[in-house]
Design a protein around this nucleic acid. Structure first.
Lengths: 235, 235
DNA sequence: CGGTACGTTGAGTCATATCAACCATAGTGG
DNA sequence: CCACTATGGTTGATATGACTCAACGTACCG
């Protein structure tokens, strides 16, 4: 406990980014969040909330990665999206005042603020700019989900896997050696693509022998992005 | 032109329903819509807007049915949802101020109001109640889309077809003879389920010989809802 | 050292897509 | 009025992508 991290990020810092929904809040409103939020660390594997549960607030991610998923047949997970620093999750349930329709689990050690529901609801009601930003965020997510419905309904597993790799590159980036910054288990990859673990393994090693990627454990090195784009059928 | 229908519905009537998002508007606001809206008839096959286009307003459906879809590989449609009386469409693009990410086409002769963008945006900014209602609507749709991703990724075509039939029953109802009130081509059914026309045909006639449904042309008669529920794997 | 979770590979199977032919219907134009 | 064309529906044959099952390898962890 000697090394315990006592640093708590001020929301002002988070709000600076011009992608954050918080950028439209007044100093006063940010103060309110700073005061009411509950900040803490979360380890890989920790569950933030589960499908069907009532949530009393939402999370704002400062560091780390969280997967948001639904549980389908026989408990098989379908990953809906990832949340990374700057993103907020669970806001949907708060706003629609329904039980959570997804679960969320930490997949890379994280730091997050938990912010009580009423704050989000109050701000949406009182701050039109913020309200619009949240609205846009929701609409954007809706667009993405609809895109994915089309993909999953029409593309082959091979095409979808290539596409997911490209999405992961976009969202999480590559390190200096061209390794994908996010690491996932084969099963997690399968649960995004919507296929079986075995199929992911086979296709990955196919991509490998075609020299599009290289594999070392869970790390994926991107060698040929153009070809992945060609395979994935995105224009 | 003798028989031209000069009846134009007042928004007050639409707003009465307690499912309409307009129920939170003031009399004054409703007057504004009444004044600015453009009401007209649309025939089956008419395209309201297409993917990628900029839209200057949104539609509120008074009568008829519209399909909202995305165009995927080789122009194959993926139907995302249907809009029926009381529903609004294209509001997503208006709010996020992005080009349309879907197309919309009339599949059952319709009457609609076209309402200019600025009205929606103004009301969202000025009327917190209305804003919340729109937010809930969006969140709800997002939840539905995410559900469908899970289904389409994990269920078989057979299961999905049964599920879609149940959804159609819920959304559009049955007439006195237990016929589904909405009629779709086999291709349209395929484009909801995310499969080929031939597969839909084969599965429908399988359901028919299993005595779950009866077919006469495009009309589908529901004989055994319980069994369809069992097949569809919904609890 | 054994346990648990993850990764890999092979073999067999099945659901579903694809291709092709054909029929029915309705609208069109000469 | 008839041929012409387009659209939708149906059925059969065939191909194959992807899943499942099963066995085994690997690595880390207490």
């Amino acid at each position: 406990m000697k090394q315990k991290d006592i640093y708590i990020p001020f929301c002002d810092n988070c709000a600076i980014s011009n992608t954050s929904v918080f950028r439209h809040l007044s100093m006063n409103e940010i103060e309110i969040i700073n005061f009411e939020k509950d900040f803490r660390h979360y380890r890989r594997g920790e569950v933030l909330y589960s499908e069907g549960s009532r949530i009393s607030g939402f999370y704002c991610i400062n560091k780390g990665i969280v997967k948001v998923f639904k549980t389908g047949i026989d408990g098989k997970e379908q990953i809906i999206r990832f949340a990374k620093p700057g993103d907020i999750i669970a806001y949907r349930s708060v706003l629609s005042n329904e039980p959570a329709c997804t679960s969320a689990k930490v997949i890379e050690d994280a730091r997050m603020c938990f912010i009580p529901s009423h704050i989000l609801i109050d701000f949406v009601k009182e701050n039109p700019q913020f309200s619009m930003a949240i609205m846009k965020l929701t609409c954007h997510e809706l667009g993405e989900s609809n895109d994915y419905i089309t993909d999953i309904a029409q593309k082959t597993v091979r095409e979808r896997l290539a596409e997911i790799l490209l999405h992961l590159i976009n969202d999480f980036g590559l390190d200096t050696d061209n390794y994908l910054k996010i690491t996932l288990t084969r099963e997690e990859l399968a649960n995004i693509v919507g296929t079986s673990t075995e199929s992911v393994i086979r296709l990955l090693s196919e991509f490998k022998s075609d020299r599009y990627i290289e594999l070392s454990g869970r790390k994926i090195k991107i060698l040929d992005r153009k070809s992945l784009e060609k395979i994935s059928n995105v224009f």
